[in-house]
């Protein structure tokens, strides 16, 4: 899954350009009678993004960063 998640993110970015695949650009159709088709499609992209990021934090989380502790005096930082 570690290798699948980056592919899913890339797929989301490609699918975001729906006109390349589905041709919603000039489509004024209302789905369920009130939601413009292009708006519904992009709401679907938002849901898919949530699912993809769930997979990312579950399978690709940088566990080593959970153990980070301060090393230097804060007042000296960057000075």
């Amino acid at each position: 899954m570690r290798y699948v998640v980056p592919l899913l993110v890339a797929a989301l970015l490609v699918l975001h350009q729906d006109d390349w695949f589905f041709g919603f650009w000039a489509e004024p159709k209302l789905v369920f009678g009130f939601l413009p088709a292009t708006l519904l499609y992009h709401a679907g992209i938002s849901l898919a993004a949530g699912l993809t990021w769930y997979l990312a934090v579950t399978f690709c989380w940088p566990e080593e960063l959970d153990a980070v502790e301060p090393e230097s005096s804060e007042s000296e930082a960057g000075a």
């Binding site: 993110v9 993004a49 960063l65 980070v68 301060p70 090393e71 230097s72 007042s75 930082a77 960057g78």
Partner: peptide
């Protein structure tokens, strides 16, 4: 599509790739 769905992908990508790393540098070096 121009800003909301794209932000859903890219904001979280930035939190994940940039935010967590910067947090760790900030925590480690103050």
């Amino acid at each position: 599509g121009m800003l909301a769905s794209s932000s859903g992908i890219i904001h979280s990508l930035c939190f994940f790739l940039i935010g967590v790393k910067l947090w760790s540098f900030g925590r480690r070096h103050g």
